[in-house]
């Protein structure tokens, strides 16, 4: 009969197969050691021992070393922050800690088996499953109202609002053509003039209209506009020879 050890066949919750394969999968990081129940491996090993007639001590030693290494790696994986605590424990304290944890786990395992039995015993209980029903929304209570007051409120809403007067916003834009003629007349007399000087006495609206006239004449290549800097004075220069009226 094959000695227990690397040839050990395992049937764990997260793995089924030979111990060798389990080690390979863990080394290749295809199986998380944290998900593997190492105690189950040891129990399987212990259960196989009575079947062996001649105990191979070397194989057993190898197995113990491997399991010890697995436990250490798993402990680091599960509890990365408690290395210091474990290192500070004496062997006796560590054994005590281990025994306490095993005892706690034994109780939990017993509780789980009680729950399993309970579930089995209750398997013939059928009941409705569903989300909790919605509770009705609380009613919003209004203080008593007079019907006449409601009618009055509606009547006020139905009235046409008074027309808003825009008279104060009235702007009289002078025609652009007026300034076109004026600039042509100025340029007949002078080769260049200052737009700012010429417009100084006008209102802002008239100035706007005059500026449009200036742009229009620029488009028609009758004059050129110069401004040395933004918001600086605008100079106007005649481009065409005076048009012959005749």
């Amino acid at each position: 009969m094959a000695p227990p050890g690397p040839a050990l066949d395992l049937d764990l919750e997260t793995f089924e197969g030979p111990f060798d394969l389990l080690l390979t999968l863990i080394l290749k990081e295809e199986l998380r050691l944290a998900e593997v129940d190492v105690a189950d491996i040891v129990v399987t090993f212990a259960e196989r021992l009575p079947e062996v007639r001649r105990l191979d001590l070397d194989a057993c030693g190898d197995f113990l070393v491997l399991v010890g290494a697995l436990l250490e790696i798993k402990a680091r994986e599960l509890f990365p922050d408690v290395d210091v605590d474990l290192a500070e424990l004496s062997p006796e304290e560590a054994a005590e800690e281990l025994a306490a944890r095993l005892e706690a786990y034994r109780r939990i395992k017993a509780a789980a088996s009680w729950l399993t039995e309970r579930l089995e015993a209750e398997s013939d209980r059928y009941f409705r499953l569903g989300p909790a029903p919605l509770a009705p929304q609380p009613e919003l209570r209004l203080v008593p109202q007079e019907p006449a007051a409601l009618a009055e409120a509606v009547r006020r809403l139905a009235q046409e609002p008074p027309e808003v007067s825009l008279s104060h916003m009235a702007l009289a834009f002078p025609p652009v053509s007026r300034f076109v003629e004026r600039f042509r007349s100025v340029l007949r007399r002078r080769v260049r003039f200052s737009f700012d000087e010429e417009m100084r006495t006008l209102s802002r609206v008239e100035q706007a209209s005059a500026f449009l006239a200036l742009l229009e004449l620029r488009k028609q290549a009758e004059l050129d506009i110069e401004q040395s800097e933004p918001f600086g004075p605008i100079g106007v220069r005649r481009l065409v020879v005076e048009r012959s009226v005749a």
Binding site: R32, L78, R101
Partner: peptide, 8 residues
């Protein structure tokens, strides 16, 4: 839970 059961 992991501490008690010994697995993640």
């Amino acid at each position: 839970i992991a501490r008690l059961r010994g697995v993640a």
